[in-house]
């Protein structure tokens, strides 16, 4: 699905990613943890194609294609979805209109006819029920005046609508209350299929109780310094990052 090899990236001349290697196979759930400022969001932005970042070295293959050569919109249309850590507000644009545009742009790219308005609305209704989304949110302007948690839930709803191959979730659990966390996790679990993969960035083991990962990686200073299974997250929960930082420093 996704194969990242020695990926290095910088912003304004400052190196942030210092050689990332990561292999995600269809159906796998990978969690990425790591201290603040380690480069987790940077990794997701670089994969999604944000132009502020400069890729200095390395490669990323997505479904056999050179991901880094694609425009951000084409990456999305190929099936890469990023649930943002900080979703932006777009005043006056309804979720319905936004998603319809997004879906039809993707269909155009794939050589399909646009979805009819009635089919779209039916599909949206179905997904809203599936994700237990409140109608009042989708009828409002996109993210405008949404609470932090509502924005995150809306990201997952969009993910469900766009049916991506790879879902990157950047701290989708931050800012969620306990019930919302359960709802979001249940939603994500519904989206899990043998083909669809997830890259879940989080600070908390809590989320991983619901969405059980196949692999857990620790990102530190722009590198993956430790990988393990779900138990690694539990270990981090108890011990924090200091022991890993020390391991890294003493290995130098």
């Amino acid at each position: 699905m996704l194969s990242i090899n020695n990926l290095k990236a910088s912003i304004e001349g400052k190196a942030i990613l210092n050689g990332i290697n990561l292999d995600i196979k269809p159906g796998e759930v990978h969690a990425i943890m790591g201290p603040n400022g380690a480069g987790k969001s940077t990794l997701s932005s670089v994969l999604a194609g944000r132009s502020d970042y400069e890729v200095n070295d390395g490669s990323a293959l997505f479904m056999g294609k050179d991901l880094l050569a694609l425009s951000p919109e084409d990456r999305a249309r190929e099936g890469l979805f990023l649930a943002f850590q900080y979703p932006v507000e777009i005043p006056g644009v309804s979720s319905t209109n936004f998603l319809k545009t997004a879906i039809n742009e993707k269909r155009k790219y794939l050589g399909l006819d646009p979805m009819e308005a009635t089919d779209f609305l039916k599909f949206m209704k179905l997904k809203m029920e599936e994700m237990e989304m409140d109608k009042s949110l989708t009828s409002r302007s996109l993210n405008e005046g949404f609470s932090g948690g509502e924005k995150k839930r809306n990201e997952v709803f969009q993910m469900a609508m766009l049916e991506p191959k790879l879902c990157i979730m950047d701290e989708t659990d931050s800012g969620l209350d306990i019930d919302a966390l359960r709802l979001v996790s249940a939603g994500v679990n519904k989206l899990r299929t043998p083909e669809r993969s997830f890259l879940v960035i989080t600070h908390y083991q809590r989320l991983l109780d619901y969405i059980v990962p196949d692999f857990v990686h620790v990102l530190y200073k722009g590198r993956i310094v430790k990988s393990g299974d779900a138990s690694l997250a539990k270990e981090l929960e108890v011990k924090g990052y200091d022991w890993i930082k020390q391991e890294v420093e003493s290995a130098k």
Partner: peptide
């Protein structure tokens, strides 16, 4: 970028945002 990430290219994104602004 948010629009791009959902598969909506630049011109279409501007048009969406502007139409929202003028709604």
């Amino acid at each position: 970028f948010y629009c791009n990430q959902r598969g909506i290219a630049l011109e279409e994104a501007i048009s969406l945002i502007v139409n929202g602004f003028c709604k």
